[in-house]
Design a protein around this nucleic acid. Structure first.
Lengths: 114, 114
DNA sequence: TAATATACCTTGACATTTAAGGTATGTTAT
DNA sequence: ATAACATACCTTAAATGTCAAGGTATATTA
């Protein structure tokens, strides 16, 4: 993984919720999607992924149900709740604000002598 | 603090190093600067700040020396090393990359029904 | 002399991530 | 047949970083 995970840390929930806003999905698929969307530069550690699902289900952001496909192993699907959508919107707003602050704090004049 | 600290988490070192690229400084001053630069929306917890100084000194990014001022309490100044500057540049590059990835992953079409 | 600002530091609890391991099914190549 | 691989889920112990809460000390101001 080429991106420092500490930078992505704190966005795990937002990334998962954003993905689920498009459609119901399951862990393996979401992680593949993240890998593809990031051009192969990032994917969630499985333990991180399943920990996040548990956290999000516990706090009411998502619900889950078992898929009925015959293909491959069984899939556990996740569905975003109304509360989850609100949470996702809030996290997105916070991200936009944080982005500005971080840019202000780390884009210094010192960067010029590069 | 109005910004979720989990979002800023992972940028503590970059923020401190960026500040030190401008000039040698000390904990209290750096934190005030962060607060001002962020429009009062963010400041580091003191424990986080001093933990970061220790971490950065341990891994060779900064060095420290005691100030000789008479005013107020004694100050411990930090100076960024050549390795620290390289690290800062690398972290900055990683931030730019991570920003794009996160924007890709959380700016979905689902956002439109807001 | 009390309050406030400056300035440093430590400790224990907490949340999240991770490496490493496990289970099971279906497909493909040998 | 069977080995290898992709799909798909899950758990545990350890590591890391942050935070609330506590502490010490100096200089200024009310």
């Amino acid at each position: 993984m080429s991106i420092a995970s500490d930078i992505i840390r704190g966005h795990t929930d937002t990334i998962i919720l954003s993905s689920l806003r498009e459609k119901d999905s399951y862990g393996y698929e979401i992680n593949k999607k993240i890998k593809t969307a990031s051009g192969g530069r990032y994917e969630l550690n499985e333990a991180t992924l399943y920990t996040a699902f548990k956290r999000l289900e516990d706090n009411g952001c998502i619900t889950s149900y078992w898929g009925t496909e015959q293909a491959n192993a069984r899939r556990k699907y996740y569905h975003i709740t109304a509360f989850g959508i609100d949470t996702c919107k809030r996290l997105h707003t916070e991200w936009e604000a944080a982005k500005k602050i971080i840019d202000t704090l780390i884009c210094t004049e010192g960067e010029k002598d590069e």
